[in-house]
Design a protein around this nucleic acid. Structure first.
Lengths: 166, 166
DNA sequence: AATGTAATGTTATAATATTACATTATATTA
DNA sequence: TAATATAATGTAATATTATAACATTACATT
């Protein structure tokens, strides 16, 4: 089951699409997606797991041994500001945004088993949150909503494993 | 307005109540609220602002110059596990839990102006989140929900300031 | 009192992130 | 196009947050 799902996901086209999208957005917003920024964006997109800044640095070192932490953090700052990636605060890690073209109210679903992160629309939750804020006379500026758990694939694998054991 | 609100809040009794509550809970759960843990709990409760681990260390150093980071982190781990404090992931900081006696589904309201943090019940949001998770075949294990913005007091102050200026 | 478990002491270091200043590349406009 | 301003990158140092490993002490249980 899991293997089939993996096979179905053509990640190369996934990266390509993300890059195209990023380039379009940067052109529109007149932001400069320089080679470094683009490369780090690609590295973030190398899979669907959140990646730490120093993991990125390690990857970049293969191509540019002189790269320094600040290189990574500058690129991350740019990509965050451009809305092209998310920072997962509970992990101090970064993940590509699945829908950068629209300002969306998303919730991150972070799998504790396979570490893959998904992003789903959560407009009504955001409305709910803003309502509660309003009830408390609190002006919302930034929402951080992260859900850790077990994704569908991993859950199915666990079920299968349990069946095999019994 | 702000001054009146501050005056209304008797923080000494606030700390005292938090401590009583913590002691009751630890007794119930057979957890050991040792002097160190208790002291760090008090330091966290010294105001309603989230506090960093190294700020706590600095405070503790006034009483115990030999205290080390790990002393703080161990106490924090204990207090977190006991449900007596929260970690605010977006700040890497810690805050006393307002309702440790009940397992509650809370949302943290973090003021970007005065840094004070409030905690409000958000049962329906949690239900919402779990519903969306279910729709995505995702098993929720842990929710991190942090809302940054401007609290009532600070908002009122801003309004007053604006009035004065005009 | 003997023993096992939990808590703390102590040292070192890992992991994450930023500051400051020099240099280079790009954009703007004179 | 050259002059200038602004943005991006290079480089070194350091700040901030957090954990690992092992010794010792305190506490709980028998």
């Amino acid at each position: 089951m899991s293997k089939i799902l993996v096979a179905q996901h053509n990640h190369k086209s996934c990266i390509k699409q993300a890059l195209n999208s990023a380039e379009t957005i940067c052109k529109q917003k007149k932001l400069r997606l320089t080679p470094i920024r683009k490369r780090i964006f690609e590295l973030i997109w190398s899979n669907h797991k959140a990646v730490g800044a120093y993991d990125l640095l390690e990857s970049l070192h293969l191509e540019d041994p002189k790269a320094k932490p600040v290189t990574i953090y500058r690129a991350l700052d740019f990509l965050l500001a451009a809305g092209l990636i998310h920072k997962i605060k509970s992990l101090n890690a970064f993940i590509g945004c699945l829908r950068p073209e629209i300002s969306h109210n998303a919730m991150l679903l972070i799998c504790n088993v396979c570490q893959q992160t998904d992003e789903v629309e959560a407009q009504n939750i955001y409305q709910n949150i803003c309502q509660i804020a309003e009830n408390n006379a609190f002006l919302p500026q930034n929402i951080s909503l992260e859900l850790h758990g077990v994704c569908n694939s991993c859950h199915q694998i666990q079920e299968i494993d349990l069946n095999n054991l019994s």
